[in-house]
Structure formats: C-alpha cells, structure tokens
C-alpha cells in the first residue's frame, strides 16, 4: 500500500453520499453500543466483585484500554484495506462476541472469583474478559471510517470531527438510554442481545453497501 504521507490520501473508491450517511449513522450506533455495554458491565460485575468504586474503575479502564488499542489497529487496518466490507465484517465479529457475553460471563466469573481473592484485581480481569475484545474491535470504527470517507485532506478536520462528534453523541445516548430505560425494563442478558443486534445491523449495512458498489 502507499505509505507516502505527503500525497493526498485516497479511498479505494471515491465515496458516495450514501456511504457517507451510513458512516455517520453507524458512528452514532457503534458509539451508543460501546457506552451502553460499559454501563451494562456493572450489572455483570457487581454480583461477583461487589459494587464498589473499583468495579467502575475496572470497567472504565478496560473500555479505554480496548478503545485505545482499537484506534491503533483500526487506523492501521483502514489504511491497509480501506473497504466498507472489511469494517462491516469487523463489526459483525464484535457483535458475535457480544452475543456470547452472557455465556462467557457465567462460565468465567466463577473461576475468576475463585482464582483471585482481591475483588479489585478480580473485577479488572472480569471486565477485560467481557469487554476488551468486542469494544476493541468496535474501537476500529472511527479511524477506519475516517479513512473510508476522506478523499480531500483540506476536509480532514471536519470529517474526523464529525465522526468523533457523532460517535460521542451516540455514546451519550447509549449511556442514558441504557441506564434510564433499558436496565429498568429488561434483563441484562436481553439488553446484551439487543446491543449485539444493533452492532450486527451496523456491520451488515456496510456489507450491503459494499455489495452495491
């Protein structure tokens, strides 16, 4: 691939308005899923590791660690394979992991609880087990999406600003909607399945968009 930073970045194919809208829309939905799942993480962790401030520290740091690595990898992958289909497949993989989280949590938390006596360390390990993989992959989104729709460096500020802005707005929505509506209305497992479904739809929409092109 062309690694010359002085030339104008090129998308694999020029972006269409449809793809642009899809990228912005999914910035919102993946942003919402990330924070919704972080809020939900506390419901998974509390029964095994207590409801102290350290469970929140474990959750927040695990999410940030996942996103941090996701940004690096997503940026690298976007440059190597700037295709909506690749991004779509990644998001679908994340959604598949989310779908398995209720099973994974049940199977692993009891053994983490037994193996690690300190609930602070235990909650970090547990948070990493359920959160790290799917949110790392969802973290690919922003840098990858910028690479997909940016064709003119004179707009790079605006485009990346919009994607991060919309994604963060989605995160606000995900946080509040999960806390004030979903948790009081449906179970933790069902909310997890709902989030997996949202992520799946986001991923599938990129696959469809790639086929159309």
């Amino acid at each position: 691939m062309n690694a010359d930073h002085h030339t104008q970045p090129q998308t694999a194919t020029p972006q269409t308005p449809g793809l642009l809208r899809l990228v912005y829309f999914n910035a919102f939905s993946t942003g919402a899923v990330i924070m919704a799942f972080e809020m939900l993480g506390s419901r998974y962790l509390n029964p095994y590791f207590g409801s102290g401030i350290y469970t929140w520290a474990a959750l927040i740091s695990s999410v940030l660690a996942a996103l941090s690595l996701g940004y690096f990898v997503g940026g690298w992958l976007g440059d190597r394979r700037p295709s909506p289909a690749i991004l779509g497949v990644c998001i679908i993989v994340a959604s598949a992991y989310l779908l398995c989280v209720p099973l994974i949590a049940e199977a692993s938390f009891a053994s983490i609880f037994k193996a690690i006596e300190d609930p602070r360390l235990g909650s970090i390990v547990a948070a990493l087990v359920i959160l790290f993989a799917p949110l790392m992959v969802l973290g690919f989104y922003s840098p990858f999406a910028i690479r997909l729709v940016l064709f003119d460096t004179t707009q790079s500020g605006r485009v990346s600003g919009r994607i991060y802005g919309i994604s963060t707005f989605g995160s606000i929505f995900g946080t509040l909607f999960t806390t004030f509506y979903l948790v009081p209305t449906m179970g933790t497992r069902n909310i997890t399945y709902l989030l997996a479904a949202c992520a799946f739809l986001a991923g599938a929409s990129f696959l469809l968009a790639a086929r159309r092109r």
Partner: peptide, 10 residues
Amino acid sequence: EGDGRLFLMR
C-alpha cells in the same frame, strides 16, 4: 471488611 455477598461466597 468487604462486600457481604462476596464474604458469604468465600
């Protein structure tokens, strides 16, 4: 000192 549920579990 600790969470009551965690105490019982151990």
